[in-house]
């Protein structure tokens, strides 16, 4: 592996990403909505929500009573309002957080795999002494790095927002818990890898950034999002189950990337029209 070449490819792709509005916009707006605006609004509005007719606490008390006692024990000492906050901001928002690595990896990969074909810049890269694998690894890192950086930044902002917005009710720092740390460090990269693998395969079949982005966004990502939706349930069961879910995602991502690499042979790419 020629790491200097890989670094050059990553540099090139990242520079191109930074300078493209079409790519940067979703990378900024989506985390902003899911990690700041929504949790902030929820934390601040919770006390008001409670007063509204239709939303009544007894329902939630009922729901909580149905949870296994082992879980309930974890929430001991919380008031109903606090439970509600913890329930929403710690558990229900977790899948929204995972949308970030999924989306970022997918948008950047659409740009660097399918978009590159569209812009006809791939041909010049193909004539360099890099191997197919080096090109692929370079492009893979170009998608993984922003996915992980944006996730991490999103997580930090979310932590701040959640703790600050819920302070009046919680009166303590309640976020993150152990499961969230696993989520950020283990499940999010796995999610990014899965989104990346899926997008690479989609990109090999289409000829433009928009097409890749749309197919990935309309068909592939919602299916993954459905799976990720289960994360809130999984996290109740604690760290170990969360680790296992991450593992499942890593395996899925690994399989997708394995097939992705096979679509990325220069001789195959040029043989297509």
């Amino acid at each position: 592996m020629n790491w200097r070449a890989i670094k050059a490819i990553v540099q090139r792709d990242l520079l191109a990403v930074f300078r493209s509005k079409g790519v940067m916009l979703p990378l900024i707006i989506v985390p902003l909505i899911f990690m700041i605006i929504l949790p902030g609004a929820f934390g601040l509005l919770m006390p008001v929500l409670n007063e509204l007719p239709g939303v009544n606490t007894p329902d939630i008390t009922l729901f909580l009573e149905r949870l296994p006692p082992a879980l309930l024990a974890r929430f001991e000492g919380y008031t109903t309002d606090q439970l509600m906050i913890v329930f929403m901001l710690v558990y229900m928002f977790a899948p929204m957080f995972l949308i970030i690595p999924l989306m970022v990896a997918s948008v950047v990969a659409s740009d660097s795999f399918a978009g590159e074909k569209e812009r006809k810049t791939l041909e010049a890269l193909i004539y360099t002494p890099t191997t197919d694998l080096e090109l692929f690894v370079g492009k893979m890192l170009s998608a993984m790095i922003p996915a992980l950086v944006v996730s991490l930044v999103g997580f930090l902002l979310y932590g701040l927002t959640a703790n600050i917005a819920a302070w009046p009710i919680m009166g303590r720092i309640f976020f993150p818990n152990a499961a969230w740390i696993i989520l950020v460090l283990w499940v999010a990269p796995a999610t990014a890898a899965t989104g990346l693998g899926a997008t690479v395969i989609v990109s090999s079949k289409v000829n433009s950034f928009q097409e890749a982005n749309q197919i990935a966004g309309i068909i592939v990502l919602p299916i993954l999002a459905l799976v990720l939706g289960q994360i809130s349930g999984v996290m109740y069961f604690g760290v170990l189950v969360t680790v296992l879910l991450g593992l499942v995602l890593w395996v899925a991502g690994g399989i997708l990337l394995f097939f992705g690499v096979r679509t990325f042979r220069r001789s195959e790419i040029l043989a297509k029209r």
Binding site: N2, R4, A5, K7, A8, I9, Q11, R12, L15, A16, R19, S20, R119, K120, T121, L122, E123, A124, L125, Y127, T128, P129, T130
Partner: peptide
């Protein structure tokens, strides 16, 4: 060295960046 039939230079990068990156790729 190959000059391809479409120039296939990176439009989002500067001329200098285009060349510097390929200089690295060609070691």
């Amino acid at each position: 060295g190959v000059l391809t039939e479409t120039p296939s230079v990176d439009e989002r990068l500067t001329g200098y960046e285009n060349l510097a990156i390929f200089a690295a790729l060609f070691n």
